[in-house]
Amino acid sequence: MTMRDESTFRVKAGLAEMLKGGVIMDVVDADQARVAEDAGAAAVMALERVPSDIRRDGGVARMSDPAMVKAVQQAVTIPVMAKARIGHFVEAQVLAALEVDFIDESEVLTPADEAHHIDKWAFKVPFVCGATSLGEALRRIGEGAAMIRSKGEAGTGDVVEAVRHMRVIRGEIRRLGTLEDAEVATAAKALQAPLELVRAVARDGKLPVPLFSAGGIATPADAALMMQLGAESVFVGSGIFKSEDPVRMAAAVVEATTHCHDPERVAAACEGLGAAMASLEARKLEPAQVLADRGW
């Protein structure tokens, strides 16, 4: 027998590395999962309600029914992700028992703990977490996250918050690169982030794990925008299956993500797609409706 080290951090972050340059699509059943895979999605996020429906329905949003997650796993060969509530380590244990490929500890669901996130080192399955700033990203990585996605404002179809969070994170990374060693320690205090991780970011000019973008991406041009702003992949939630023609929209977002630096290809991808998802202006949300503030 070859000796194997399973589920090391390198193996966890390595799967995130393999999802680069791709699109991760929210799906609510096996049929949507097949549509996503056939359109070229790099992975799917299995959840019972997309964020725009969670907003509409209100109430507590929880982990999906394991039967639904299993049906999606059986329908496709690409990686399957699923969401657990912030701090709800038993939902995460359930998803790990189902052997999902990635767990999203997600602000889109109603938080289960308003002080503590899940100890992600305790799991063999890799985790992705949302962040609105560099300090938040590094706290999540310190807890064991193997991928960070900028949060944006899920379920709105308004890309403005995704842009804000990506610019904040990338801007703070660039700023760290200008500091002297002594100043890096002070910066870590201000960021409320582990010093060793802050030092690594200052040295490397990037996060120690892949940085993807999420929350409000509704069109191929939105996806290309986030890629040009420094996202290494995009999550598209309600934007695909709440659009007029999901099959074409899904393929178009994939094409625009791959060719994000080629305006002619992005233009071709945008052509004749029909209506995008019904949208909400993020700045007009009531404070209690803002999902990006969840996480500590």
Binding site: M3, V11, P126
Partner: peptide, 25 residues
């Protein structure tokens, strides 16, 4: 993914000992 792993591989005609290999799905 939970079965993804790292291992040292003996490699035919490669000098310098085993290759440390990362296997992901």
């Amino acid at each position: 993914q939970v079965r993804s792993f790292e291992a040292d591989l003996r490699f035919a005609d490669l000098e310098g000992g085993p290759v440390h290999a990362v296997f992901i799905r």
